[in-house]
């Protein structure tokens, strides 16, 4: 066709900013709500389990506490298929490159939960071997304190994270798409 390229006239939202055209606000808000609802209730965790918190992770995934009610029970043991990385337990300096690599292998959108004080800040291991908080190497969305945290705390964290996901602006097409 010799006419002007129609695609150039439709404003595409740049990453992180709402579209400038007010006519599209209604559509994008509704889209965000729908996408947010879908994403928050279909979290596929990648349980990066290392230590004692893993016991509580097993408990929270099981019958009595049950993360399946929140849609967040089915673990995907490959980062390619998961969107919530739950870093469960202490991350040592030896393990840090592995953690970073797994995080980078995940696709957008992705969220990170620091499960337990060791993942949050190194816990009470303040020595040469332990990474003092995973946020030193990867960005974290929600921190769950506790050594180990009670399953109810983890569920509370998942619910807060779900609220945040629901209220996020979900970029479907990035500016550089």
């Amino acid at each position: 066709m010799n006419g002007p390229d129609k695609r150039a006239t439709i404003p595409i939202a740049a990453a992180g900013s709402p579209p400038k055209n007010p006519v599209f606000d209604v559509f994008t808000t509704k889209k965000d709500e729908v996408v947010g609802w879908a994403r928050k209730f279909s979290l596929f965790p990648y349980p990066f389990v290392t230590a004692c918190c893993g016991m509580e992770f097993m408990s929270v995934s099981s019958t009595i506490y049950d993360t399946d009610r929140f849609g967040a029970a089915l673990p995907r043991f490959t980062p390619r298929q998961s969107d919530l990385m739950m870093v469960v337990g202490t991350i040592t300096h030896k393990q840090a490159p592995v953690l970073q690599r797994i995080y980078e292998q995940m696709c957008e959108p992705k969220w990170v939960m620091a499960f337990g004080v060791c993942a949050t800040s190194g816990g009470f291991y303040n020595n040469y071997a332990v990474l003092q908080g995973i946020d030193k190497v990867i960005p974290v969305d929600i921190y769950v304190p506790g050594c180990p945290p009670r399953p109810e705390m983890v569920i509370d964290a998942i619910m807060q994270l779900q609220e945040r996901i629901a209220n996020e602006h979900h970029v479907i097409l990035k500016g550089d798409f």
Binding site: K94, F124, N127
Partner: peptide
């Protein structure tokens, strides 16, 4: 060794009582 948390070094910096939580987390099951 991916979970080496420096337990033995950490113990030398605590009193005999204070290191009981570290001992707990050896076989945490």
């Amino acid at each position: 060794g991916y979970l080496h948390r420096g337990f033995e070094k950490e113990c030398e910096a605590h009193t005999w009582h204070n290191l009981i939580p570290y001992v707990d987390r050896l076989n945490y099951c």
